[in-house]
Amino acid sequence: MNFRTFAAFVGPSVFMMLLFIAFPLISVFVQSFYVTQTVYEVVEVETCTPGFLTQTCTTEKTSVPVVGEDGHVLTTTEFVGLQSYANVLELGRAWDALKSGSWSAFQTIDFWKALRFTLTFTLITLPLNIGLGLGIALMINNAAKAARGPVIFISLLPFIITPVIGALSINWLFRGDGILTAAMEWYSGRDIAMFAQAWTIELLMMLYRVWHVAPFAAIVLYAGLQTVNSDSLESAVIDGASRWQRLRYIVIPHLMPLIIFVSMIHLMDAYRVFEEVVGFSSQGHVISLQWLTYDFLVPDQAGNRSISRASASAMLTMIGITLLLIAPLRRTWRDHKGGH
């Protein structure tokens, strides 16, 4: 293929990627170094609000934004360097907490609290997702031909459900005296409140995530199972290999590239955990990095959005994902080079 043809094919998608991925990323990156502030002035204002029978008027000094001649509020934008990153990371407080050896004090700082949960969530759900996915794939593979279609359809269902809706339905099953909580109370004879402490919420969130994404792993691994060399499997049977040994020494090595692929997708997705926090309204107990970014962006009661801190937090999340991906990427790279 000559260069012209190649460029004609690739050009549009490179342009799209620049427009919709690279530029917004650069914009977020730049914004994380700047702060835009409203210009306030202090004025004495008399405010009259309804009382029960008569009005109450108070006169006090308050800060109000300066409105420019064009009718818009005046703002200034200045370069603050790494200030927003420092505001998110709160390194000083984190260091003090660690120095005094207090993990609980360390875990009261939003970013580190969110990082702790995000990492736990990602790393615990990863093996569960792969394991369950492989299990479902083997089950489909061993199912009778006629049953395969329906089994695939049913096992894919959780993946089709919109994440927030799925999280909400699980939430309602357990909230207060929800059906499943009531069932557990009946079974154990104890009063159970699933949303009263952090660890039960975390457990529910992880269960939900695995339930939701395992079908994807299953369908990918099931595709891989179709290409396992049947000669090797037959010779293994003749050599007296048990079912487990065949899985361990033939099937899994064959599926390894796919397992790495599924793991990478899962790492990227799980590190951005967000729907679970919203769906389970867990923010009182547990927050994630992505939720933190979102929370910075939500206007506070005075209408301000913390764009700079949100940008910094988004950049930090991206750095985190990159760090996590280094290990599987290196492996893929090594396999790729070794294969040629």
Binding site: T49, V64, Q301
Partner: peptide, 26 residues
Amino acid sequence: PYPASTALGILHSALGNGLSAYLTGA
């Protein structure tokens, strides 16, 4: 009356995020 102001608007949000740590005993 609820003493609404820009400052209290920001503080109300900070309170909303920060208070649960005390109630959960953190």
